[in-house]
Each structure stands twice: as C-alpha cells, then as structure tokens.
Design a binder for these strands. Structure first.
Lengths: 357, 357
DNA sequence: CTGAAAGCGCTTACAG
DNA sequence: CTGAAAGCGCTTACAG
C-alpha cells in the first residue's frame, strides 16, 4: 500500500470550537472578513504571512465556508439533479456511475433521486429550488409525465437531458438505437441460416419494446421473411418478470411446443441465460440445436456455458454524449434541443451457431 | 395505465418570464415579499384570495424559491452526503439504493460521491460546505483515512455512520459480523461431513478478509480440526480479480492438485459460480463430489445449476440500522459513538451436500 | 496590503 | 390581514 497522503494528518487534534461563519472565523484569526474571504478564494495580492495564518486556522478549526451563502452571491451551484428510474438493474447503475464520474470531472456534484410514477414534478421542483445547473433523466418513465417536465424545462431554459427514452417532444435526448439493435441481431441469426425466431420477454407496448419489435420486423422484411411465420412468443402465458426464472419458464414453454424455433432473442441477459439453462435442461444443445442472443452485454454474459452473445448498449458513449449535451446547454442557453442516437454493437460469443440442416 | 396525476397538466403553457427571487415574484403578483413568503410556507391567517392568487402565479411562472437563501436563515439543509467505495458491485449498489430510499422517507436528499484513495478529505469538506446534516461511508476504505475523517466529525459533532468497515476508533458503524458469517459456513459444511476446505479468493490482509479467515479458524478449532491440514488455497498463483474467470481459474488449479478438498468457500458469489462451472468442466459433480458456498446472496445465485448456497449480508437490516444511528445523532448531538453488528444468514440451496464416503 | 459597507434571496419579529 | 426592516453568511466594488 502506498504512503497515506497528507489528508490523514491532524487526525488527533483536540475538539475545536465549532466555527460557523467567516465573521466568527475572522475574529478567531484576528483579520477582517474581507481578508479571510480573499484567502479562501485564492486571490492574489495578499501578504504571505496572512495566507499562512488563515490556512493554519482553517486546519485548526475545521471551518468550511457555507456554500449556500456563496451561491447567493451569484456563484453557480455546480450541481446536477439526476432522476433515476431505478437503482437496481446493472445497466441503470452503470449509467449512474459513469454519469456521476463524468460530472465530477467537470466539477459538478450529483444529487440523485429515484422517481416513482407521479413524483417527477415534486422532485424537479426540489432540484430547482436547490438551483441545480441541469437535470438528467435516466431510464423509462411515463411519457406524458416526462414530456410535461421537459416542457417546463424549456420554458425556463433549464438544461436537461433524457437518457434512454425517445419520443419526448422538445427534449434533449440520448438513446440507444433499439430498432437497429434488434435488426443486427436478426440479421446475424439469418446469416447463420435461422428463419424462425422465438422472442423471450419481448412483448408489451412501451416505446422501447415497440422499437425493438420494429427492428426485428424490418430485418425480416428485408430478407423476405413474413412476421407471422417467423416469430413465435409465449409471453402471454406468464406474468413477465425479466429474470432468470422467467427465462427458464419461457424455455420450457417453447420446448414443449412442436417444431420450436432454432433461434431466440431475449429482452435482456437475465432472461436469455435463464432460457439457455432451461433449454439445456430440456435436452437441447446450445448452440448446436439452439442459438440465443441476450441484450445489454452485462458481466453475467460470461457466466453460462456457452458464454452469451449479446447486444452492447454503449453505456459509456451514451453517458458521455449526454454530458456533452448538458454542457452545451449550460454554455449556450439558447441552443436547440437535440437527439443523439447510439449505435448498438453485437458482441458475438458462444451461444449462436449455424442452423443444423 | 392509470389516469395521469395532475402533475401532467399545464405542460403546454407558453414560455414565461423567468422569475428568480421572491422580490421579482412579489412584484409580479402585486403583493409584498412577506406575504408571498407566508403563502409559500403554508402559514395561517391569510386571505383565501391571496393564497389562490399566489399559488396560481407560481404555476404560471414556475417560480421556485431559492433553497439556499432559506437555509441561510437557519433552516436545516435536510441533505446527507454519501461516500461510496464503488458503484459497480451489486451489494454496494443495493446499499446505496436502500439508503437513498430510507433517507428520502425521512425527508433527506442524498448527495453521492465515489471516493478514490486520498480524496476523502476534499469530498467531506465539500459536503460540509454544503452543510449536510450527516455523512455516510459505504464500503471498505483505507483505514487511516477514514479514521482521520471520523476524528474530524467527532470534533465538530458531525453526525456520521460507517457502513461495512469495522475498526475505526470513535466511529458510529454498522457492519456484517463476518467472523460469524464464515463460522456458520464452515459449521454447515462440517455438519455435512467435510473436513478439508478450499478457499476461493479469501486471501489478503484487509480487515474484512482477516475477519472472515478468523471465523473459519474458530469453527475449525471448535471442531478439533487443525488449520494447516484443513485449509487449502491457490490464490497466490493468480492476480485476484473477484470475478467468474478467477473462480474458474482457481477451480482448475484445485482440480489438478492431488487429493483436492471436497468443500469450497468463496469470497463472493461470482467466484463461487465461476468455480462451480470450472469444477463441472473438470468432471466433478456439484454437489455430490464437491460442495460450494458463495457470499452476498446476490440474484446470480439462482443462475447456476445447482443453485448456489450463499451467505446473506442482511443489506436492508444494515442500512436501516445505519439510518437509525444517523437520526439518533441528529436528534441528540451528544450521543456516544455506537457500533451495530448484523447477523449473517446462511441461505441453503443446492450447491452443498453430504460428503461421499 | 487590508478593511467597512452594500447586497445576494430569503424569513421573522415588529408595526400598522 | 398585510407590509417595511433587519439579518442569515458570504463576496465585491470602493476606500484607505
């Protein structure tokens, strides 16, 4: 372990009088508030001795100037409010982690809230009362709700960016091109000779699902396959849960049916892996009998045997683009709303193979 | 989908003049700042019509009072600073999610930063300049560094709690009883007839590892087993990575050795699952030939076949205890530092069985 | 090189 | 029931 930096020192000093304002602190040092303020802000033209004296007194007392008063004087808060759909799924968390890191690099602190339906107005008000410099949404929310917030942001010129959710009018947004994401999956499978596809968890009427289904259809159409004959689903038989067990359940439903598809496309990696195990339990070999593709390219893709082919979201690229959109708005308040699409990348691993004759 | 709540309304109003202070706002409404302030704070004794007029103007303008000025008047910030070791491992994230939720329920906002070695002083200063009501650490940090921060907190009566890291003098802390966590694992395996144990990733000199090893030893001693004969490890052969692949590598190292142990205890679930697959690849049957126990009881325990026995950290209990410690300190600034230990629970699944004769 | 005064956006006695 | 004035903790011209 390397030598501890200097921030470890002074740990054993005695309890100091708690100083709460520059006024008290200035009295403690024996200087005027003005002078103290200048030292705290690293302004030039101060006597060496004065600077030393003040800095030492700061160490002694642990005094920290009140950032709130500072902001009152017109200083930016350098704070960004982040609204998360959830903090439990790995992709969401990776986005948050990256976002927090990138914002920090640019000097911004992150305020984080998890949104439940109907709370966005209250949460954004709270963020605005804290005078955040920008607001970020990460995930999928009720469309009308976010649209209303974005409208408010635009009428107040509040910098913002919506990550992952398309279709919000007037919003600055960054999102994965999910249409393309599914298209490349189906094209990959078609190239391997597959013509009939089982969908795992890909049902519903959210924008995200609709986009993904339309990507599938467009690939099928381009290769002269009909949707009705090429696509099978069993989602309607279960309550969708998006986890391993759900994937297993779907796999067993497909296994029992006669003439099951040879290729499967999943909503996410969890379902894909559950299904992979389900098919293996039912006696199918993956990938020789059955090919499976996941979505999100999470760490767990490396866990099953064979390792799972999956679509990578480009989380880093997404977040970095979002941060850029944000900074552009902060720099130029009059800039027009923009949408940036991120290209998905198919990560080929061991779970897909050429269809057996 | 249910009817959208009222927060969706007024989304189409025209861009309003941006009002930034109660002064401007009061002028806009045609009342004195005092009166406006009273409405904003729901104070009694106001004319019905006045209240309506102000509230309506707030909707029209989107005006939000500046929380910073408010705090200057002595109001608590109702903000907590959270220092995370990382935002990438599922247990850390689950703690953060729970913490954020529980704090929110109590009316506190969460400021979140990821700490890298040596940055704690700067980060805490920043939090204190934002006048957070408390500071929380989640994870394992350099001991001297956290100790220094805790010392500062105590000399300033700053409410704080350290989650997961024991051994910080004077700290309020909550942590899993890792000694006991390992003890119950070994006792479980001994009860199944195992006498020789392979350790997977359990090496190093962090407090957390030392505690876990001491739990193992204490269980062995109590059952008359000697440490040197009962414990095997291959960690020194690899660079530890705490992931699936590392578990696989360890499994193959154990498989090649003559007379390998029949029971394995892992640092975490990832390593355990990697090893489980590694042993299966090498021709061992789990659990009939080999028993494996993970740690953390993450979702992925349900993924392998057989499903993985693991130790549950009691994350909810941990975080809830931490929040209580925090609130106690906020209510009673003079309260003595306390440490709360959380009892681990062994979740028995399919990866352990009685040792074959 | 240092200090006294004004002002940022609020709330809270104190008047009316 | 409503309003004018003081003050919270800072910084920034403006003096000296």
């Amino acid at each position: 372990m390397s030598t501890p930096p200097s921030s470890f020192s002074s740990s054993q000093r005695k309890p100091a009088t708690r100083i709460r304002s520059t006024a008290e602190f200035a009295k403690y040092v024996g200087l005027a508030r003005t002078t103290v303020s200048r030292v705290l802000n690293d302004q030039p033209g101060l006597k060496e001795a004065t600077v030393t004296k003040v800095k030492q007194a700061m160490e002694e007392t642990g005094f920290t100037p009140n950032a709130y008063a500072l902001h009152l004087k017109g200083k930016k808060t350098a704070t960004v409010g982040i609204c998360m759909e959830n903090l439990l799924t790995p992709p969401a968390v990776r986005k948050l982690a990256r976002l927090q890191q990138k914002l920090k690099e640019r000097g911004f602190s992150s305020l984080i809230e998890v949104l439940t339906p109907g709370t966005s107005k209250e949460v954004c008000r709270h963020f605005l009362s804290l005078r955040v410099d920008a607001i970020v949404f990460v995930g999928h929310f009720i469309e009308e709700e976010i649209a209303a917030r974005v409208n408010e942001f635009n009428s107040q010129s509040t910098p913002h960016v919506v990550i992952d959710q398309l279709g919000i009018p007037g919003a600055n947004s960054v999102a994965l091109d999910r249409v393309k994401g599914m298209k490349i999956v189906i094209e990959h499978l078609i190239a391997l000779g597959h013509t009939r596809f089982g969908l795992l968890g890909l049902s519903g009427s959210t924008r995200s699902i609709i986009d993904r289904l339309s990507g599938i259809e467009s690939a099928l159409t381009e290769h002269g396959l009909s949707k009705s004959e090429s696509i099978l689903t069993h989602d309607s038989k279960f309550i969708r849960k998006n986890d391993f067990d759900y994937g297993r359940a779907l796999a067993s439903a497909f296994s029992c049916a006669k003439n099951p598809p040879t290729a499967y496309v999943a909503l996410n990696d969890e379902i894909a892996i559950g299904a992979l195990h389900g098919f293996q339990d039912a006696g199918f070999k993956v990938p020789s009998d059955i090919s499976i593709v996941g979505f999100n390219n999470q760490d767990i893709c490396l866990m099953p045997k064979p390792v799972l082919t999956s679509v990578d979201q480009g989380i880093e690229e997404t977040v970095d683009a979002a941060v850029n959109l944000l900074l552009d708005q902060i720099d130029r308040p009059s800039i027009k709303p923009r949408t940036k699409m991120i290209e998905p990348i198919l990560i080929e691993r061991g779970s897909c193979a050429r269809r057996k004759k």
